[in-house]
Amino acid sequence: MNVFRLTGDIAHLLAIILLLMKIWKTRSCAGVSGKSQMMFALVFTTRYLDLITNFISLYNTTMKMIFIASSYGTLYLMFLKFRATYDSNHDTFRMEFLVVPVAGLSFLVNHDFSPLEILWTFSIYLESVAILPQLFMISKTGEAETITSHYLFALGSYRALYILNWVYRFYFEGFFDLIAVVAGCVQTVLYCDFFYLYITKVWKGKKLTLPA
């Protein structure tokens, strides 16, 4: 555990809490992609199956359980409790275009050809692209609520901080997980355009809107 990893995890947790708070307080999930949220639930479910088989630490177990529970909590709010506010007309990204190639790749490129390891790899690859429906939705509507943009900034920062964690671990622990690093870099790059808009607009007190 190093400071980058810890702040990355906190940013991730903060992102999830921000999203849940936005939906709960506004009683609405308008502007949130249900498809991205479904894929995040799938990511946590397939990655954290080792909760059953392997104990690492109290921190590890607690965070994993929070991530799994909150992802299903978000789905419950979006698809059951506040279903009427779900903006499905703008959430038109085709999930199969991500899930199918990612599933194929996780069978081909993994650390070990075992069920749990393939599922872990699947979750790493899927996480790297799971935000695309959300970004696609923003590009379709041309804007995002400020709280939604804070959520995305925290979520993007998490993987960027993990990259610093991997650099640290490479130099000080000789540790290097190619699959995690490549997928993590792809994931972070996908946010770059959003980061630019967020810093130039939201930090100056404006709403996040896309240039015409």
């Binding site: 990893r5 392997n54 630490s57 650390h111 390891e117 964690n165």
Partner: peptide
């Protein structure tokens, strides 16, 4: 190590 079979990272 090239990977951590325990996957301690979240």
């Amino acid at each position: 190590a090239t990977y951590d079979p325990n996957h301690d990272e979240l």
